[in-house]
Computed example of a mutant assay.
Amino acid sequence: MKLSVFTAATPDLTPEELASAAREAGISGVEWRYKDVPPEMAHEAPSYWRNNLCSISSGWDEAELVRFRQAAEANGLITVSVTPYLTCGDLDGTKRVLEAARKLGASFIRLGVHRYDRSRRYGGLFEEQQTYLKAAESLCARYGVKGLVETHHVTIAPSASAAFRLVEGLSPDHIGVLYDPGNMVYEGFENYRMGMELLGPYLAHVHVKNAGWEPGPEENGIVRWTSGGCSFRSGMVDWRQVISDLQAVGYQGWLGAEDFSGELSGREMLRQYGQFMNSLLK
């Protein structure tokens, strides 16, 4: 298994700074965040979701892509993914991301998945998702870049089994699953190895972060628990067990850092991530 970093988690580093810091931390792959930073946010302090200094814009041109490609190449990094925030059914946006990914030599993009917030029934969302994924499968085959469905809370793919239901029957050469145990702390937890075995050839990529729950205020005699991000070592995901299970199913892909705990600078997070994961992989 190899280490990468999703640049959503390093908002304080420019592409050049990120690539250099990743190399120093023993990380060999990069997943570029693909998201516009609106002008009104550009003067804010760097943050994960707003003024992220390491993001490809949706209006990219060749010069912008050259900058990201050169940052990776100058530090010996492989561009693993271009990772956008697409919505289900946005085929034009999907094509645009695939084009950027192909130009950068990326293996993956992340596809759009319907939210689930109780406002619509699952059945209708599932049908629309299948239609989109079938069309995305053809696009991914054309561009030579695999499209991934991420296990993510507040979507119709919060668990490995729910994600498998979406991709079942599609070609694992073109469509796969981004397995994220940290997201499954919030919603969708299943036995890690069982989920990996179920996904089989669709298990294409893994994100590494951690999260936890703690009791919150009491409302009408009921304690409301709250959740949030934690450091790699301190959350509810047993990463030693996850790595053992990945090894057991023969996974040899990337492990992408995606720490949103806010406890460390981007550079220090990468250093500690490299040390932590290498200790587990040994």
Rank of each mutant, 00 (worst) to 15 (best):
Y48D: 01
K134W: 07
R33I: 07
E127R: 12
L3W: 05
F276I: 00
P38Y: 08
F164S: 04
L148C: 07
A42C: 04
S159A: 15
Q130N: 11
A25P: 10
G266F: 05
A135M: 04
M269A: 10
L111W: 02
E24H: 10
P15H: 03
Y273D: 07
E258I: 00
H43P: 00
N278F: 12
L77W: 00
P15C: 02
Q70C: 14
I78G: 00
G144S: 09
S279I: 05
K2E: 10
H114R: 11
C140T: 05
E263V: 02
V82R: 05
C54N: 09
A257Q: 09
D245N: 13
T87D: 09
V208C: 14
A45H: 03
A211K: 01
W213V: 11
A257F: 15
G76M: 06
K209L: 11
A74M: 15
Y251W: 09
W254M: 13
Y85T: 09
P39M: 05
H153G: 08
G29I: 02
W49D: 08
T94R: 01
G229K: 02
V154S: 12
N191V: 14
T79S: 01
A72C: 04
R118K: 11
E99N: 09
Y34L: 13
Q275S: 11
E128T: 11
G124M: 07
L255C: 05
R67E: 14
R142A: 12
G124S: 14
A72E: 00
A8E: 09
G229Q: 08
Y132E: 04
A211H: 04
E16T: 04
E137R: 01
Y48W: 12
Y251T: 00
A162D: 12
Y186M: 07
P39A: 14
E214L: 13
C54G: 06
S20N: 03
R142H: 14
S161W: 09
H174F: 12
L18I: 00
L246S: 08
V237S: 10
R118C: 12
R271N: 11
D61P: 03
D36C: 07
S47D: 13
A71V: 02
K134H: 14
V249G: 06
A162C: 09
V185Y: 04
F6L: 15
V97C: 06
K103E: 00
V249I: 11
L53A: 10
P15F: 04
V5Q: 02
G182T: 05
A22F: 02
F108A: 11
G216E: 06
P38C: 13
W239N: 04
F232K: 03
G253V: 08
L198Y: 02
R23E: 15
M196Q: 04
G182V: 03
P39Q: 10
R120P: 03
I109H: 07
S244E: 15
A162P: 03
L125W: 01
A72I: 00
P84I: 05
Y186T: 12
T94I: 13
V97T: 14
R115N: 12
L98P: 02
E150S: 08
T79Y: 00
D173I: 01
H205K: 03
K2D: 09
C230K: 13
